[in-house]
């Protein structure tokens, strides 16, 4: 992708703004002075050692975790302000988990229809049409009436992506979406994410898939011990990392 088209694709509007966010578990500080601005349409990859706070950071965005200090503004809504604001944020932010977290007692179609009907008040017919549209887009339209346990891991994760998309979110969060998958299924999930990126979705992805990061990310963020140590465009991030900790991490992860 050329720099020119990049510049025109990314808008100036800031859709996520994290200001001086700090979070503790007991006395253990898991997030330290996190400042992050994400522009509409931006694709961000977050990487870093296990336990560095990557999951905690993105889970603060839809308030699955609560940060004790700082402000988080998503789509001009203060995440921590009130429960009504939280509702508004959660309607706009989709999330995909490492362990899929599909609802095992519901069919694939029901998984995708529930939230639009119960949260957005969409009619059943409309919810089904939307669900089928997104199941087609993640290329599993024929699995709609199966239960999650009948699907492969890769298929389950694609259902999870479709389920989130059915709420028409403005932002998608991915927390190591391919880490629980058998190697042969990683690609089908990454391909789905790439096509989502091509459609202009704002995405924050915690992943160690550096090929994906290189080809899709506008910006890569490296975290260690609760801090954002370094961030940059993929080119400079991989070819010229500034910090020792980043170099060590890249050395380890790229040698595999």
């Amino acid at each position: 992708m050329s720099t020119m088209s990049e510049a025109s694709r990314l808008q100036d509007e800031i859709i996520i703004r994290m200001e001086d966010v700090q979070k503790w578990y007991g006395t253990f500080q898991v997030l330290k002075d996190i400042n992050l601005k994400v522009r509409t349409g931006e694709r961000i990859v977050i990487c870093g050692p296990s336990g560095s706070g990557k999951s905690t950071l993105i889970r603060c965005i839809n308030r699955l975790e609560h940060a004790q200090k700082g402000r988080i503004i998503v789509d001009n809504i203060d995440v921590g302000a009130s429960s009504r604001d939280l509702d508004a944020v959660r309607r706009e932010v989709g999330m995909v988990f490492q362990q899929f977290n599909l609802f095992p007692h519901m069919t694939v179609l029901e998984n995708c229809m529930l939230a639009p009907m119960k949260v957005r008040g969409t009619s059943k017919a409309q919810a089904e049409a939307t669900a089928r549209k997104y199941l087609t887009r993640v290329r599993i339209p024929d699995q709609a009436d199966k239960y999650p346990a009948q699907l492969s891991g890769g298929q389950q994760q694609r259902v999870a992506i479709a389920r989130a998309l059915c709420m028409s979110p403005k932002i998608m969060l991915f927390d190591e979406p391919t880490s629980a998958l058998d190697p042969e299924m990683v690609k089908e999930v990454l391909d789905t994410m790439v096509s989502l990126a091509e459609e202009g979705m704002t995405m924050l992805c915690v992943t160690h898939e550096m090929g994906f990061a290189r080809s899709v990310a506008d910006r890569i963020i490296f975290m260690d011990r609760g801090e954002i140590v370094e961030e940059g465009a993929p080119d400079t991030f991989f070819s010229n990392p500034q910090h020792e900790r980043t170099r060590n991490f890249l050395g380890q992860i790229l040698s595999h």
Binding site: N62, L64, R90, G94, M95, V119, M167
Partner: peptide, 14 residues
């Protein structure tokens, strides 16, 4: 499992 509560919460279910 915890993940079920989280997935439902992330989808905005009350």
């Amino acid at each position: 499992p915890r993940g079920q509560w989280e997935a439902a919460g992330a989808l905005g279910l009350h």
